[in-house]
């Protein structure tokens, strides 16, 4: 019993550390400009003069006390981020899962695993210029499909490797039995194997979604105005009058955390099973 309490205390301490920076951001989101940095006032944890104006500003573009009105509100970048992250995640998960199954079962594709690993390890900055030129040639700059496609490709290695490790652990006998029962090979994959690994797919999808959702660099180089995403949009929250609008950025940071959290909660029951990546058998 003392052990349980001791462990709980230690874990609570960790949770507090995890939450402190987030709570600093959360209180910052409710602070007026004068309380953002020590250039104007001594800092306090809680806002002395709490206000919704940071949220009003990012959602409507205009707020009392801010000289410059925002050219764009957060709505469209939010939509752009959601759309491209979701489609990118779908591309990665569908293609990666299919390929992982193929490689796991039939060893086709040669060294595709290594190639995908290289693709992921490679620093994107070392290759973004050619990709930008290629995207421009194909007319995919500043389009939702162009951004979704690159997101799908750069996260493909994750879904492949995570899913492959899971399929590797799954005995083939189940599928073989199904085929003997009269299934085609595809039906065995689609109706028998996939439902077993659905939790792995879900947790893989969450992880990939977070990666796509957080991307700053790719969106910076492959968009122009229509499809800039939340992390790129955040840079717009600075003005000549007040410099970095930390309060508005904090508000945006809170807003940006919502989709991953919702997704995380909705698939939480899969997380514990899923993220073992199937590396172990029960």
């Amino acid at each position: 019993m003392t052990g349980l309490i001791l462990r709980t205390v230690v874990v609570a301490l960790f949770a507090a550390i995890a939450l402190l920076p987030i709570s600093w951001m959360a209180t910052m989101a409710f602070k007026p400009p004068a309380e953002w940095t020590s250039a104007t006032a001594e800092l306090t944890f809680l806002p002395k003069d709490p206000t919704w104006s940071n949220f009003v500003y990012v959602f409507t573009g205009e707020v009392e006390g801010q000289i410059v009105s925002l050219d764009r509100t957060v709505w469209w970048p939010l939509f752009a981020s959601l759309l491209t992250s979701v489609i990118g995640t779908l591309i990665a998960v569908v293609a990666g899962t299919a390929a992982a199954y193929a490689v796991s079962r039939e060893k086709v594709g040669g060294s595709i695993g290594l190639s995908l690993l290289q693709l992921r390890i490679f620093p994107p900055l070392a290759v973004m210029i050619p990709v930008m030129i290629m995207w421009a040639f194909l007319g995919m700059i500043d389009t939702w499909w162009g951004l979704s496609l690159i997101y799908g490709i750069v996260t493909l290695p994750f879904s492949f490797w995570l899913m492959k490790s899971y399929f590797d652990e799954l005995p083939r006998e189940i599928e073989e039995a199904a085929i003997v029962e009269g299934c085609t090979a595809f039906e065995a994959f689609y109706q028998i194997t996939l439902p077993i690994v659905v939790s792995a797919v879900a947790s893989t999808a969450l992880f990939i979604f977070i990666l796509n959702w957080s991307d700053y660099l790719i969106a910076l180089l492959l968009t122009r105005k229509e499809w800039t995403t939340i992390p790129v949009y955040m840079n717009a929250l600075a003005t000549a009058a007040s410099g970095q609008l930390y309060g508005a950025k904090a508000a945006l940071g809170l807003i940006a955390a919502i989709p991953p959290i919702i997704l995380g909660i909705s698939i939480q029951r899969f997380l514990v099973q899923g993220l073992t990546f199937g590396a172990l058998k029960q």
Binding site: T8, V11, A12, F14, A15, A18, L19, P21, I22, W24, M25, M28, T37, S38, I210, W213, S214, Y216, I230, P231, M234, Q244, Y246, K249, A250, L252, G253, A256, A257, P260, I261, G264, I265, Q268
Partner: peptide
């Protein structure tokens, strides 16, 4: 606690950069 501990992962890294920039002043 499980949910709370996972929270930092959900923050966009660029946002985390801003938070820590301010925290470490």
């Amino acid at each position: 606690f499980y949910s709370l501990i996972l929270m930092p992962m959900m923050i966009v890294p660029a946002v985390a950069g801003y938070i820590f920039f301010l925290i470490f002043q």
